[in-house]
Amino acid sequence: MKKYLAEMIGTMVLVLMGCGAAVFAGAVQPFASVGTLGVALAFGLSVLAMVYTIGKISGCHINPAITLGMLVSKKISSKDATMYMLFQVIGAIIGSAILYVLAKDSGSTTTLTGANGYTSVLPAFVAETVFTFIFLLVVFGSTSKGADNKFAGIAIGLSLTLIHIVCIPITGTSVNPARSIAPAIFEMVQGNGAAMGQLWLFIVAPFLGAIIAAVVWKAIDTAKE
């Protein structure tokens, strides 16, 4: 249960800080604008901080795509994988709920929870699949046997930052189904069902990218089990 609670807390922090930066300090409010780079750093730094906070407890997946990749790689049991994903979504919902309360009377003209979205299906699907694949490769490589694991959090956090810099203009960047599910729920509370209608892509594409990454990493990894 400690592992599951750690995943819940970590995902809550990721959604609150990352999506919070998009809502409160994106390009909509010039007096506090951090732009795409700032939002990308908020997501990356959130992951980096959580890796060194809860990594020793749960491994700090805080992302169902990472958990699926670990399951495919047989690095986690199916029971733990299921519970990880459940508590990740719960944590994301808590983070989005806090953000919704903070943002609903703020006068922000953006979405109140930083929901993902796209204008064209094919580029969005390709982006989410490919960038999740890249992200998972970094996770596998930086945490593998023989790697300098002390710096894994830095590699993972910076890679997520890089992914956001490129992908934010395409989809707002998910590469994390829990990060997309919770904001979409609160968009519906706000009276906008568009994010929920597009949510399938932000579940299917990251999961596909994670599976491909697990297969590719197994093929190229030189460490013996």
Rank of each mutant, 00 (worst) to 15 (best):
I54M: 02
V204T: 06
A195S: 13
M17G: 15
G107M: 07
L71M: 10
L112P: 14
E128A: 06
L5E: 04
A6C: 05
W217P: 01
A103G: 09
M85H: 09
G91H: 10
G95E: 11
I76T: 11
L99H: 02
L199G: 09
A40N: 09
I211V: 14
P177Y: 03
V72W: 04
L201T: 11
A155R: 06
G117E: 07
V138E: 04
G69T: 01
N63V: 01
A223G: 06
T110P: 14
M17W: 03
Y84I: 01
V126Q: 05
V138G: 09
T171I: 06
A103L: 03
V51Q: 04
S159L: 04
F31Y: 14
F131E: 08
G20N: 05
V101D: 05
K75L: 08
V34F: 13
V130I: 13
A194W: 03
S77A: 10
F135Q: 06
S78M: 10
S142E: 07
I220F: 14
Y84M: 04
F135R: 02
S33T: 08
G10E: 07
L48M: 15
F186H: 07
K218P: 10
I66P: 00
K74F: 04
V51P: 00
G18H: 04
A155T: 09
A49G: 12
H164C: 03
T110S: 15
I170A: 04
D105S: 14
P123S: 05
L208E: 10
G153P: 03
Q88H: 15
P123A: 07
I90F: 15
S77H: 10
I156K: 00
Q29D: 15
P30C: 02
T11M: 07
S142W: 03
A124T: 10
V101A: 15
I170Q: 05
M8V: 10
P169N: 00
A178R: 03
V34A: 13
L208N: 05
T222F: 15
L48D: 03
Y118V: 11
G197S: 09
G117C: 13
M50P: 06
F133M: 01
A65R: 04
L71G: 05
K150P: 10
F24V: 02
S77P: 14
T143W: 09
Y84N: 01
T161A: 01
G153T: 00
A194R: 07
V101F: 15
G153D: 01
Q29H: 15
V89A: 13
V139I: 14
A65V: 04
A194S: 14
F125D: 03
T109L: 12
T173S: 11
L160V: 01
F43K: 04
M70Y: 09
D221T: 14
P123E: 04
N116W: 08
F207L: 13
G146D: 08
L162H: 00
I76A: 05
A115R: 06
A27N: 15
Q29T: 05
A205D: 12
G107T: 00
L68P: 00
V166P: 02
S106I: 00
K56H: 13
